[in-house]
């Protein structure tokens, strides 16, 4: 009987090993460990044994049962794991197929540039002033020291609606409007972005509608060196640390002294390239100290207050920054153009 038990154990373990799936394994379990299984059968025949043999045989039978049980469990775990793996293998997908697209639009490149510049000046304590695009002759010209008949009015051919009303030719009217609101008391520290209009035929470098950003600071003791420091800070933040700026004398009726401001070329680091036309410098804005007539007309005492103003063209800056070749792109709204400005 002892042999029989050992034989049964060998047999069962072999069948467990052979069982290919859970069903087969269960059949082995039922066959060997069931109530009518061969081990129970052997135990039932124990009555024929001498009493002192019985416990030994009982113990052996339990050992065998235990061994089979363990083998069953081990096999079951293994089969279950295999089952899961098979299932997962069957569920495998091609991860290189495209994902469900998230639809994204983006801001216009001009807005991108304008907001960047706004934020940069907000960081230096400026607020944003906005004003009408359809202006009076007074704010567009006269309050800016450009009386009727002034030769500099030729510099900007304007879209008049009536003799007194026109589309603003620059954002500078906001200088006078803002200063008037301050009723002769500083400080004034503003940035004015907006659309402006001039009688130009649209081509690669001209647009009858374009944008400008004006800056104005008026306070006691504002110096021209403050203008230089402010614009250098601006140029470095917009075009990268290490940029330098230079002033070239110029003329605007509403500033005195007036300068044009160049930034050292960000493409070639000032060595000369196609972007800076070999000069190492790129003209980016016009600026100057606010003309005393402008201060006085807007109600500021030009003996106690001084100020600086500057103006720049977001189109030009965007064209430089992104290498855009034609100003008309900004107003055609070709999606193949617009969607190039998605990235942060």
């Amino acid at each position: 009987m002892k042999e029989r038990l050992h034989e049964l154990e060998r047999e069962a373990l072999a069948k467990i090993d052979q069982a290919g799936d859970l069903k087969a394994l269960n059949e082995v379990r039922v066959a060997y460990l069931g109530k009518k299984g061969p081990i129970t059968e052997v135990l039932r025949g124990m009555g024929a044994l001498p009493p002192e043999e019985r416990p030994k045989l009982g113990a052996l039978a339990n050992e065998v049962r235990e061994a089979i049980q363990q083998a069953l469990e081990a096999k079951q775990t293994k089969l279950e794991e295999e089952e899961i793996e098979r299932k997962l293998a069957a569920e495998a997908i091609d991860v290189t197929l495209p994902g469900r697209p998230v639809r994204l639009g983006n801001a216009h490149p001009l807005t991108r540039v304008i907001e960047e510049i706004e934020d940069l000046f907000i960081g230096m304590g400026y607020t944003i002033a906005e004003g009408p695009e359809v202006e009076t002759d007074y704010y567009n010209f006269e309050a800016l020291n450009l009386p009727k008949g002034h030769p500099a009015r030729d510099m900007q051919d304007s879209f008049y609606i009536t003799e007194e009303i026109l589309l603003r030719t620059h954002t500078s009217p906001m200088q006078a409007r803002t200063m008037e609101k301050h009723r002769g008391r500083g400080p004034v520290k503003i940035i004015c972005p907006g659309k402006v209009y001039r009688r130009d035929t649209d081509d690669a470098t001209h647009s009858h509608q374009f944008t400008q950003i004006e800056g104005l600071v008026v306070d006691r003791h504002i110096r021209m060196s403050d203008l230089k420091g402010t614009l250098r800070e601006f140029a470095r933040k917009l075009f990268g640390e290490g940029r330098d700026i230079r002033f070239r004398p110029s003329f605007f009726p509403f500033t005195e002294p007036s300068v044009e401001v160049d930034v050292s070329c960000f493409r070639c680091e000032g060595h000369g390239c196609s972007v800076c036309k070999g000069t190492g410098w790129i003209e980016i804005l016009g600026a100057g100290m606010v003309h005393p007539n402008v201060l006085e007309m807007a109600g500021f005492d030009s003996k106690t207050y001084t100020g600086f103003a500057f103006g720049m063209g977001p189109e030009r800056i965007a064209m430089l920054k992104y290498g855009i070749d034609d100003i008309r792109h900004f107003y055609q709204n070709d999606l193949r153009f617009l969607r190039q400005f998605l990235r942060v």
Binding site: I122, T127, K228, E233, R246
Partner: peptide, 24 residues
């Protein structure tokens, strides 16, 4: 200024009470 040369102009920042900027 122009004959003195703008290159000789120092670069400073306005000295004024610090007021925060911002959007409306």
């Amino acid at each position: 200024a122009r004959l003195y040369g703008y290159d000789h102009l120092p670069a400073t920042l306005p000295v004024a009470e610090a007021k925060p900027g911002g959007l409306t």
